[in-house]
Simulated assay, not measured.
Amino acid sequence: MKKNLPPNPLTSLKAKIAKYLLEDEVIMNWSILNKCILILILGSLVHIIWIIWKSFILLSPNLWNFVHLPLLKLQLKLDILFCCLLILMVFPCAYWHKKRWAQQWLPYLSIGILVLSLCRNGSMIGVLSPATMVSYVSLVTVGLVLFNRKIVYYTLVPVTLFLILSNYLSLQGQISYAPLFNLSTSPYQNKFWVSSMLYFIAPILIICLILFEILLSQWRHREQLIQHLSQIDPLTNTLNRRSIKACLEKLEHKPTKSYALVLIDLDHFKQINDQYGHNKGDETLIQVSEALSQIIRDNDVVGRFGGEEFILILHQSSLAQAENIAERCRQAIQALHLLSNMGDIIKVTASFGVAFSSTETNPQKLLSQADKALYEAKACGRNQVKCYRERLVEAKLY
């Protein structure tokens, strides 16, 4: 006897993470203050990376000649200050996340503090350095994805003006370019400067790439979900009329037309709604769709064609096979166990009209034939299967 093995914790964790990232918590749908919290946390991580770099320089006397040591010490203190400030800003964003005034002003304050700290570090390592440019482009792109454009441009315009002005003043010799470093030659000939740029760029790129991957995965999942919902009837979880029409159009262009259509209409469905309520009517439709889905083959199609009308597309099926499947579906619907709120048995039956394709029959004409067969089934007393048999010999059915 096979024993039930305990669930793998790692697999369970991966499933929870995937569900969180792709389904339940789409980042683009977060509230604006939750997005601010995310940016503040990422900004504090970047500051921690800077603190580690500057602390490493201070603890390595052999590297002191590559930097302006007093300025490095000052910048380390400012990094710690801004890191603490960014972390502290998380608390008001979380505490007042439902307050209208907080939603209006805290995003500007949070992003303003982050951008101010980034501009300060950018001017220290060179406004045209790769690290500064990567940070500039990455933050603008992430900001435009997550936030209202007004908030992004509120910080983008002064930052851009600051970078242009700093670069102009450094070209005029009025301020030092990359004052944190001792650059006697071209920066790109200084191995220490180049390695420092790589150190600054790597975490920013990794963080932004991870964030973009999450956003892209969520966007793709949402697009697939929207596409799925546009094709599915929300109540019965079967194909809707639009999707059925698309399936029939595909069949019209196929070289082989060996298929059958089955139209199904629930008998006296209006009486179920009137006597037991629309909730019981919905429950009836759901159970009928489930019964149909269990009987048809994997390559067949079931859809809701109207209010209480369903349709089956049976691929590569003879008339006899289609009639047999329809009869099994009729029996399954008749055997449904539905109870009213008072405990009364709700009787459910359905009438079926079957039509088989021939080389001269297009899907729309076949649909009309199935409808005629369905009308005959209802005229003969309902709860039965009728097949459209006109021109049966010409179609060479078997």
Rank of each mutant, 00 (worst) to 15 (best):
M28E: 15
N29P: 01
W30K: 07
S31H: 15
I32A: 04
K35E: 13
K35R: 15
C36G: 07
I37C: 12
L38R: 00
L42R: 09
L42A: 10
S44F: 02
S44R: 01
V46D: 03
V46P: 02
V46A: 13
H47A: 05
I48V: 11
I49Q: 09
I49F: 09
W50R: 00
I51L: 00
K54Q: 08
F56R: 05
L59H: 03
L59D: 00
S60Q: 01
P61F: 03
N62V: 10
L63C: 05
L63R: 00
W64T: 00
N65D: 14
N65Y: 10
H68G: 02
L69M: 09
P70L: 01
L71Q: 00
L72K: 05
L72A: 07
K73F: 11
L74C: 14
L76K: 01
K77R: 15
L81F: 14
L81T: 10
F82A: 11
F82E: 01
C83R: 02
C83N: 09
C84M: 09
L85R: 02
L86C: 02
I87P: 14
I87T: 15
L88H: 09
L88A: 15
M89V: 07
V90I: 14
F91M: 08
C93A: 08
C93F: 06
A94R: 15
Y95V: 08
K98P: 05
K99M: 11
R100C: 06
W101D: 04
Q104I: 13
Q104K: 15
Y108S: 10
Y108L: 08
L109V: 12
S110V: 06
G112C: 07
G112T: 10
G112H: 06
G112S: 13
I113V: 15
L114Y: 07
V115L: 10
N121E: 03
N121T: 04
G122P: 04
G122Y: 02
S123F: 12
S123E: 08
L128F: 11
S129G: 08
P130C: 03
M133I: 12
S135A: 15
Y136G: 03
S138G: 13
L139P: 02
L139G: 13
L139D: 07
V140D: 04
T141I: 11
T141V: 12
V142D: 11
G143F: 10
G143P: 09
L144Q: 05
V145Y: 14
F147L: 02
N148L: 04
R149W: 12
R149P: 08
K150S: 14
